[in-house]
Amino acid sequence: MKTDQLINLLSTNLEPVKRGETKKMLTWTILAGGLAAVCLMLATVGLRPGGGWFLSGYLLLKLLFMLILIGAGAALLAKLVSPGQDGRKLYTVILLAFLAIGSAGVCALVLGPPAARDQMMMGSQWATCALCIPLFAIVPFSALIWALRRGAPTNLRRTGAVAGLVAGALGAVAYAFHCPDDSLPFIALWYGGMVALCALLGAMIGPRLLRW
């Protein structure tokens, strides 16, 4: 085939393109993925028993940490699906969020009573946390991959990593409504750690899923 033939084909009866569809789709995908994660949480481990906990600062802190990651991650994904753009400042935001919670966790450990250190780090349900966050992230991750494939990601590993990060953070938001463990070291270690793990997994399988 001559290239002129292809150009003819592509420019005959050209349809106009709607603007801003990609961003809209990413936003809806994240909202729907988050909702799916919350439903899965309700159907499996359920809400944290007892009242009053949802007013606690720890729930707010968990949600704030995750919402920063989701916000920065979503903005990054919008750039990553558009060839030739990068979002360096957004990586800094993500890094700072991890650093902040990490150093808060270390401070709490150092300042707290030595006898309570194990309890602060492991809480009562560290294994449930470690299992649930990636599990709740599966649906949001699949949805994000589907949406990203409609864009044109050119750095597949990085796109996969950020998709994993956002999906992990959505999973962590859902888990936060069950989580009975309120301590800074716990949040840093298990929330931070599992979301980072999701990002790593995303980076590993992203290239295979996103190729176009």
Binding site: L10, V17, K18, T22, S82, P83, Q85, G151, A152
Partner: peptide, 8 residues
């Protein structure tokens, strides 16, 4: 052509 919607 098929990904031109991704151009900002």
């Amino acid at each position: 052509h098929t990904r031109r919607h991704t151009y900002d």
